[in-house]
Design a protein around this nucleic acid. Structure first.
Lengths: 205, 205
DNA sequence: GGCGCCATCATACAAACGTATGAATCACGC
DNA sequence: GCGTGATTCATACGTTTGTATGATGGCGCC
């Protein structure tokens, strides 16, 4: 008896969590409906199929994200500062949706056709980043290098750090839910990204 | 009729490829045996179970790798050079086993217990890296920061770039099988890692 | 009250899954 | 040639899977 409102929303939340932890194939419709306290037929009813639910999950995470990244890239300030703002936006998004790194990275690792919302998000984010990098290269604050490759190197930092959280807990005794720890990780990534991109003065040789 | 030798080796190769592309749950024993031209019962006979085969796959990729990373870390040269050597070792391993990034990353993303060989590899690689980074911090060539976090930032680069190969092909028209392209990617990551780690002289303010 | 629409439910179904198992074949040594 | 162990094979089995579908109840409108 599921009389609580928003069955579809509960399914979406359950699916988000389970697809992130177990992957698409490792998550059954029954596991999703059990977690959402919904009936087995609810997935077909509300979404049409398991795959359509999966696409909706990806979309629910990525769509709001794109605008935030674009806003950070379009903000005021030097290119390196704007890239820092983008990185902080990524961290905020991961805090809002802790499943995001695993979901995105599973999409990247899979031979399955990429869900359109994920593909759009990646393209737009990489474009926002690489254009900001180009601006920095033009004004001399960012080193030379391929802007798209540099963009990917930037995005790799927060995503992989989120994925390796388990190792961090064991290796450093960190508590991922501790705000001070989170701030430390953000600081680390921001410093690393800035160091990786900043143009250095010519070495006197 | 499978009279060809090394049925177990064929299963291992087929499983390696399929686990990387489809993940553990998305790969059926029947798909593996079909690809290996072996009988359905062969997996249970040679490995005991699908899961044991999976562990063997992970082990077959990671075990030789650890020694190579340790050798690169123990080599002669400045810490930054040794870190570059480690990065090149990672790329060589990925060239030898193109499935490696996807396999490793799926392990990281999964809620499933980490296969012991993968856990050992990661610990040892991170240790080799972070000790090299500490040496660089002691001699002043590498900037301050947590060595383990810095190690993870280093490893994220080649892995992520390998995973996003599809996007690179679309965004840059790159052919991943082209040696010149590979060299370009290696150069990019090496430069990025060195830039991210190198200690900068104090800015005159 | 009846109707239509929506949402929930329980169940059925065909297909797929990993494992188990006994039979058959092969390879090797004596 | 025989015996033994290893390997391959075909099949069975219980379980799980995603989808389909008809029944039922709730709600709003006429």
């Amino acid at each position: 008896m599921n009389h609580a409102p928003d069955c579809a929303a509960r399914l979406l939340a359950a699916a988000r969590a389970l697809f992130a932890r177990r992957g698409y194939d490792g998550t059954s419709v029954r596991a999703i409906t059990a977690k959402a306290k919904a009936n087995l037929g609810a997935v077909t009813y509300h979404f049409g199929s398991k795959e359509a639910l999966y696409h909706k999950v990806i979309e629910s995470i990525t769509e709001p994200f794109v605008d935030r990244v674009a806003a950070a890239a379009a903000g005021a300030g030097a290119p390196l500062d704007r890239i820092e703002a983008i990185v902080r936006t990524v961290f905020e998004q991961m805090e809002r949706h802790p499943e995001m790194p695993a979901l995105i990275i599973r999409v990247l690792a899979s031979e399955r056709r990429m869900p359109p919302p994920a593909a759009r998000t990646m393209q737009r984010n990489i474009r926002a980043l690489s254009e900001t990098i180009r601006a920095g290269q033009r004004d001399g604050s960012i080193r030379t290098g391929d802007p798209i490759l540099l963009s990917m190197s930037v995005v790799a930092q927060p995503l992989h750090l989120a994925l390796t959280g388990r190792l961090l807990e064991q290796g450093l005794g960190l508590d991922r839910h501790d705000p001070a720890t989170r701030a430390r990780l953000v600081r680390h990534v921001v410093e690393t990204v800035r160091a990786a991109l900043a143009r250095q003065p010519k070495a006197p040789s």
